[in-house]
């Protein structure tokens, strides 16, 4: 269960988000749509802890977070351009954080990573480096990397924008299959068809006047 209350954010004297409230049940998908400049990405960055809000609170699975601080705990992010670590193989990209932050031992982390890769039809790609992957493959590595940290929620920033239009349906299927496994997901997109296809709930963000 995700509940965001009274979220507000401004840059300088430009108010971007104001008194924003929404909630999302476990295992559901929320898509956030709206024109560029409306604050969709800012919303994601605040929920993920990459940006401090001016005010607001977030409750994730009973855990209360002050959105004007940066501490968020278990929120995973799939970035628009994926931000894989180029100096590490696919497997190292996935196992790095579980080993360092969750103190998993190497064998356990690798076993779990291989399981995730198999689930994402990437079983044979563990030894490759990011530059050797296509856009769609990079995205699946980014998803596996986020999932390896056992997030309570996974956020996507424009998951279809860096991909071939033909891959759009594949991404939709992938997101829906993750939903079946009970993952709560928040998706920023400007692609309305895509948003409607995967969403349980659509949140429209409009640019504020003035």
């Amino acid at each position: 269960m995700l509940e965001v209350k009274k979220l507000a954010k401004s840059f300088g004297n430009r108010q971007i988000l104001q008194n924003m409230n929404f909630s999302l049940k476990d295992g559901e998908i929320l898509t956030v749509v709206g024109p560029s400049g409306a604050g969709k990405t800012t919303l994601l960055r605040i929920v993920a802890g990459l940006e401090r809000a001016d005010a607001g609170s977030m409750n994730l699975d009973g855990e209360e977070y002050d959105l004007s601080q940066e501490e968020r705990g278990a929120v995973g992010v799939v970035f628009q351009d994926f931000n894989l670590f180029p100096n590490m193989s696919v497997l190292e990209n996935i196992t790095l954080a579980p080993q360092l932050a969750l103190k998993e031992d190497k064998e356990a982390a690798e076993a779990k990573a291989k399981e995730l890769l198999a689930k994402l039809q990437m079983a044979d790609k563990g030894g490759l480096y990011p530059y050797q992957l296509s856009g769609g493959q990079k995205q699946r590595v980014a998803i596996a990397r986020a999932l390896a940290m056992q997030p309570k929620m996974l956020c996507y920033d424009e998951p279809t924008s860096a991909l071939d239009p033909a891959l759009r349906d594949q991404v939709a299927d992938l997101i829906l299959s993750l939903k079946e496994s009970g993952l709560t997901q928040l998706i920023i997109t400007h692609d309305m068809d895509f948003a409607k296809k995967v969403a349980d709930q659509v949140l429209e963000v409009k640019p504020l006047e003035g």
Partner: peptide, 24 residues
Amino acid sequence: GQFEAAKVLQLTYGQTLRKIVIPQ
């Protein structure tokens, strides 16, 4: 983006420098 990816993966600043930034 490399720092942000490391941050949401809950790596500390020191770990980010050592494992991701300095090798690159």
